[in-house]
Nucleic acid binder design. Structure first.
Lengths: 299, 299
DNA sequence: CTTTCTCCATATGTCATAGATATGGCATGG
DNA sequence: CCATGCCATATCTATGACATATGGAGAAAG
């Protein structure tokens, strides 16, 4: 049995007339009769009484009609579902964020915009280190991520830059350089311990901070490693050292720390949206597009 | 799109492998590839990622699978519905009864048996005059009826006799013949008014009663007509006359009336199940069969 | 790095069958 | 009684579903 038989059957059931039903279906009457006869033979039950003035449903035909009437609509609905999913308007989207990326206002903006543009998409947001996120995307556990891009990121991923922001210095409130509000000369920190997350957590910020110090002409002394970005601020507040962080972390109001911008050449760090180059979920590219738009409008 | 495409799609989606899916479907791999390609072209969306080790569902494919997975089962269910209805195991059955037929114990027995044998059939029982019932059956408003058959019943109906029962006389308790318990000689009633329903309500009992009197050698005097069978007893109790009724009406305990059987040759009246000769609903023939069985077992 | 295996796509031929056309039978109605 | 409307049968055509043969590409194995 094929959908064709159902469509033909329903047409005859509605018209109560083979000839008119055939016309409506755009075929001749004999093939329609033949198809209905085949259908009846297959299910072993007569569906129509052929009477002089047309065709009447039998009891079996009525039951059959009730059972199959919704089927053509379900076929059509399935097609629409597939098309919408193909355009990336439905489904699930797993978004990954790193600790510092989540603090950049572009990120909540982008997620909010996406949620409005694709209300039928189920969002799943998780925070993890850059390396975890990149791995998850490569292996398909995650669709897209916003993070700090690094040279070492896998080549099979597409990274689209969203923004660049300056690094700023974080000092304990009691630090001698904490009172000055002017841009700070990095070499002033040459004697302080530099608190960073381990390079295994995120290469980008780690490398950017080290590179900034070296560009300023000194090799920093590394202090205690911080397990996560947010805990850098706690360690600084505890006067265990100083650190360099993206400017957007200024919005974290941690007691006992002071942020100071850095005198030119100001080191900068990027923010990028990342997804698979091959077979990207349509949702992922849609999300990336919206994130780019949000970033552009903010610039 | 045809059901075939759905079956093929679901097989590939499950096997994640065109070759195995084709084997399971009993066709070759190239035609399967071709059918899937046609399906994708029709809905304009790629459903599978063709990768080295097989085929993976795209987002669209996953949505499509969720939407179409139940369809093959629904086709099968529709076939079963039609087959059951074709065997007369489901649907509605309209049963008509005349006033006197309803009193014969065969009738409730038959309805009860049918309800047990076909629990999925929705029963609709109505009581009306023979002529109304016969008309309703001819015109399709009713499927089957149990009534007192008459020669004048439409030939396009099939009547299957269920039983015959004797007529008995109904007398007012004060009637001179009411005391005797032996079978009564009909001519004893030649001076009493005979109370009957109008011939337009039911020819059978009307004619049978008149015929019995004439066979007994007298022309009865007709009393006031009774609108329904049951009201005959009330009119007799009111001493407006006597009547002849089927023996099964004895179970009506109306105060002030006495039943007496009739001396041979005892007039008899039939009980029959009636349904259309042409295009009888399967349920109607099933009901008639059960009614015949019940009647046979009671004999 | 080459070989081999696996799997899907392409190419081509065949056959089943959906459908067209022509016609006949059977009711109903003027 | 003939005209009309409707469905069934008969026959032909052509689309397309499927089989067979082959190619190409990636992964696994040597």
């Amino acid at each position: 049995m094929e959908l064709r038989h159902i469509r033909y059957f329903l047409a005859v059931a509605e018209e109560r007339n083979f000839t008119r039903a055939a016309a409506r279906l755009g075929i001749g009457q004999p093939p329609l009769s033949s198809q209905i006869r085949d259908l009846e033979a297959e299910i072993g039950v007569q569906l129509f009484h052929r009477v002089a003035h047309g065709a009447e449903l039998t009891e079996a035909g009525q039951g059959f009609r009730d059972a199959v009437a919704p089927l053509p609509g379900q076929f059509a609905a399935a097609i629409r579902v597939a098309q919408r999913a193909g355009r990336g308007e439905t489904g699930q989207l797993g978004i990954g964020l790193t600790g510092t990326a989540a603090l950049n206002p572009i990120v909540p903006d982008a997620i909010r915009s996406f949620g409005r543009a694709y209300p039928d998409v189920e969002l799943r947001v998780e925070e993890a280190s850059s390396l975890t996120l990149l791995n998850n995307i490569v292996e398909g556990r995650l669709d897209v991520a916003i993070l700090r891009p690094a040279e070492s990121d896998p080549v099979e991923l597409r990274e689209e830059s969203l923004a660049e922001e300056p690094l700023v210095v974080v000092l304990p409130a009691a630090h001698p350089a904490a009172q000055d509000r002017r841009p700070l000369d990095l070499p002033l920190l040459r004697d302080d311990a530099l608190i960073l997350t381990p390079r295994s957590v995120g290469t980008s910020l780690h490398d950017a901070a080290l590179a900034a110090c070296r560009a300023a002409g000194f090799e920093p002394r590394l202090g205690q490693p911080a397990p996560q970005i947010a805990s850098i601020l706690s360690l600084v507040a505890a006067e265990l050292g100083v650190s360099l962080v993206p400017a957007s972390m200024r919005q974290l109001n941690v007691h006992g720390v002071v942020f100071r911008s850095i005198r030119a050449p100001t080191p900068r760090i990027g923010l990028a949206v990342v997804y698979r180059k091959t077979l990207p979920p349509p949702l992922a590219t849609n999300f990336a597009r919206i994130a780019r738009n949000v970033a552009r409008d903010r610039r």
